[in-house]
Every structure is written in C-alpha cells, then in structure tokens.
Amino acid sequence: MKARVHITLKNGVLDPQGKAIQHALGSLGFDGVDDVRQGKYIELDLSTTDKAAAEANVEEMCKKLLANMVIENYSIEIE
C-alpha cells in the first residue's frame, strides 16, 4: 500500500519560508500572489494490505515523528 502525508503549518503560525517564496515570486513578476504557505509531502510504501491498519500505523508515525503536533496539521491518504 502507498500512504501520502501532507503536512502544513496551522493557521496563525508564522511561515517565513512562505513569505520568502511570496517575495521571490513578486520579484520574478508574478503579481497578485497574496499569501504563500509551504508544507511537506511524504510518501510511504507500506507492506501491509490492511487499509485500516495502514492508516492507524501512519497516524501514529505522524504523531510521533513526521508532524510537529504543536504547530502543524496533517492529512493522510492511503491507496
């Protein structure tokens, strides 16, 4: 199975990398970009064939390592 994890900063958390990207886009002539928030994308190949077990396992991975629960949100897709 394949798991895809999208990790983003929570609303209200400052995003200096997003601001740098926004500024760079403006410098390159891409006007009209009002805000940029950047995040992480992690793809995992799992050996299990049980979708519920895979989701529970990846959920635990996010809580223990992949996401900083204080400042980040995450979403999981299992295929």
Rank of each mutant, 00 (worst) to 15 (best):
Met1Arg: 08
Lys2Gly: 05
Lys2Phe: 11
Lys2Pro: 04
Lys2Ser: 12
Ala3Trp: 13
Ala3Asn: 11
Arg4Gly: 10
Arg4Ser: 15
Arg4Trp: 07
Arg4Leu: 15
Val5Tyr: 07
Val5Leu: 07
His6Tyr: 13
His6Pro: 01
His6Ala: 09
Thr8Tyr: 10
Thr8Glu: 14
Thr8Gln: 11
Leu9Ile: 10
Leu9Glu: 04
Leu9Trp: 05
Lys10Ile: 08
Lys10Trp: 08
Asn11Val: 11
Asn11Thr: 11
Gly12Pro: 12
Val13His: 08
Val13Asp: 12
Asp15Pro: 04
Asp15His: 00
Pro16Leu: 05
Pro16Ser: 02
Pro16Glu: 01
Gln17Tyr: 00
Lys19Cys: 01
Lys19Leu: 03
Ile21Asn: 02
Gln22Leu: 07
Gln22Asn: 06
His23Glu: 13
His23Ala: 14
His23Pro: 00
Ala24Tyr: 05
Ala24Gln: 10
Ala24Asn: 09
Leu25Pro: 12
Leu25Trp: 14
Gly26Ser: 14
Gly26Thr: 09
Ser27Leu: 15
Leu28Pro: 09
Leu28His: 13
Leu28Val: 04
Gly29Ser: 02
Gly29Lys: 02
Phe30Pro: 08
Asp31Lys: 07
Asp31Arg: 01
Gly32Asn: 08
Val33Met: 06
Asp34Thr: 01
Asp35Trp: 00
Asp35Pro: 00
Arg37Tyr: 01
Gln38Met: 08
Gln38Arg: 08
Gly39Cys: 13
Gly39Met: 11
Gly39His: 05
Gly39Val: 13
Lys40Asp: 09
Lys40Gln: 11
Lys40Asn: 14
Lys40Pro: 06
Tyr41Lys: 12
Tyr41Met: 15
Tyr41Asp: 06
Ile42Gln: 03
Ile42Asn: 03
Ile42Trp: 00
Glu43Gln: 12
Leu44Val: 13
Leu44Pro: 01
Leu44Thr: 04
Leu46Asn: 02
Ser47His: 14
Thr48Ser: 15
Thr48Gln: 11
Thr48Lys: 12
Thr49Ile: 13
Thr49Val: 13
Thr49Ala: 14
Asp50His: 05
Asp50Ala: 08
Asp50Lys: 12
Lys51Pro: 08
Ala53Lys: 15
Ala53Leu: 12
Ala53Met: 10
Ala54Thr: 09
Glu55Ile: 04
Ala56His: 00
Ala56Arg: 01
Ala56Gln: 06
Ala56Gly: 11
Asn57Ser: 15
Asn57Phe: 14
Asn57Gly: 14
Val58Phe: 04
Glu60Gln: 10
Lys64Cys: 02
Lys64Asn: 14
Lys64Pro: 07
Lys64Gly: 05
Leu65Gln: 08
Leu66Gln: 02
Leu66Trp: 02
Leu66Cys: 02
Asn68Ala: 01
Met69Thr: 13
Met69Leu: 15
Met69Tyr: 06
Val70Ala: 14
Ile71Trp: 03
Ile71Tyr: 00
Glu72Tyr: 04
Glu72Val: 07
Glu72Trp: 02
Glu72Phe: 00
Asn73Met: 10
Asn73Glu: 14
Tyr74Arg: 03
Ser75Pro: 01
Ser75Val: 09
Ser75Met: 06
Ile76Arg: 03
Ile76Lys: 04
Ile76Asn: 02
Ile76Ser: 06
Ile76Trp: 01
Ile78Phe: 05
Ile78Arg: 03
Ile78Met: 11
Ile78Leu: 09
Ile78Glu: 06
Glu79Trp: 03
